[in-house]
């Protein structure tokens, strides 16, 4: 089911949490709402769910205006950050809850409920835990039960608030993959909130970047990474080297082989993997190799740039292990750089 938000604004006292948000999410997408803490992403999710009321604006689910509908009538499934499992009920009763509270004329009988609950527990691979209580489960298991519970009422939209936030790193990795696969299987339009750009890129089919109550950019992970709309998105979405274009920097950038397109653009962002390192032939290069760290298959190289009287600046480059070994460099060596490409922004 498609989601359309139009002109959503929300204030908490003097603080403007969301400012005139317009957002369209086509059916079947798995969307990440990405942003730093306090950017309004959870508030937006809660407004879509109906757990919070927007000060102005409208929410359309599948073309139907649901702004005035109560949370219990929106047909959404909500997975809470801390799962909010009913602590006095077994796993089975938790998942069955949404079916049991249906109005009499829509309520299935207990046999059908049991069948459905077990099917859902099979889906999240936890049917063997059906008679346990929530406090007897691990974080990852609780997360999956919370998801099964939300899916029991066959929601048209699934909303997840920081779904991996409270889990260990290793469990988180597994669950990300699992959620992606589950979404492919069920194809329910889903939105999840996260502050982790890696998580958003890995799981989502669409990423919406939020900051200070404004949408910064919406697009596929590749779009966001390759064509960041502004300085904020570029910095938030991955590591980057920032250059403010003064005369000296500009001359030096030209020497690295970078094409400088327009005079009006005065900030350049260069991704670490777009910097190539070459052994310096003469001793005049302003770049000194300071240190390096192993990041698995890649090496991150820390460089210091000292141009004339300016402050020394630290740059980061990344390359495969093999390539770095071939360069045969040690700390303190002077190197030259080749910069393949940069993202250009206007300074504001």
């Amino acid at each position: 089911m498609s989601i359309l938000l139009s002109h959503i604004s929300k204030n908490f006292g003097d603080f403007s949490a969301l400012h005139n948000i317009d957002l369209e999410i086509p059916e079947g997408e798995l969307v990440a709402l990405l942003g730093p803490s306090g950017c309004g992403k959870t508030t937006l999710l809660r407004i879509i769910a109906g757990l919070e009321q927007a000060d102005s604006g409208h929410i359309f689910l599948n073309g139907e205006d649901k702004t005035a509908h109560h949370v219990s009538e929106r047909g959404i499934g909500f997975v809470f950050q801390h799962y909010a499992l009913f602590r006095h009920m077994t796993v089975f009763d938790n998942v069955a809850f949404g079916l049991r509270v249906k109005k009499k004329e829509h309520r299935p009988n207990e046999a059908i409920i049991a069948k459905k609950v077990h099917a859902l527990l099979e889906l999240v691979q936890l049917d063997w835990l059906h008679d346990r209580f929530p406090d007897q489960l691990s974080g990852g298991q609780r997360q999956r039960i919370a998801l099964a519970r939300a899916l029991a009422v066959e929601p048209s939209v699934l909303l997840l608030d920081e779904p991996f936030g409270a889990l260990d790193a290793s469990v988180r990795k597994d669950l990300r993959q699992w959620l992606r696969n589950l979404h492919n299987e069920l194809n329910v339009t889903s939105i999840f909130v996260t502050h982790d750009q890696e998580e958003a890129m890995e799981v989502a089919s669409q990423v919406v970047v939020l900051n200070k109550g404004h949408i910064q950019q919406q697009g596929s992970p590749a779009d966001i990474y390759d064509y960041p709309a502004n300085v904020f998105v570029s910095k938030f979405i991955g590591q980057t080297n920032e250059f403010h274009l003064h005369r000296h920097t500009s001359d030096w950038l030209k020497q690295t082989g970078l094409h400088i397109p327009q005079e009006s653009d005065s900030i350049a962002h260069v991704r670490p993997h777009d910097i190539e390192i070459i052994n310096a032939l003469d001793g005049n290069s302003p770049i000194i190799l300071k240190d390096w760290q192993h990041l698995g298959a890649l090496i991150r190289v820390e460089l210091t740039k000292k141009l004339h009287e300016s402050e020394p600046k630290t740059l980061y480059a990344e390359m495969p292990n093999e390539q770095f070994k071939r360069l045969n460099l040690t700390r303190g060596d002077r190197v030259e750089l080749k910069i393949r490409q940069a993202h250009w922004f206007n300074s504001l």
Partner: peptide
Amino acid sequence: SEEEEAALSLGASGWKMFFFITLPN
């Protein structure tokens, strides 16, 4: 109030939320 919100999001009315979730707790 997370558990109560969860009950509402699963379609429970205010009364059902109170009797099935709040009161037992």
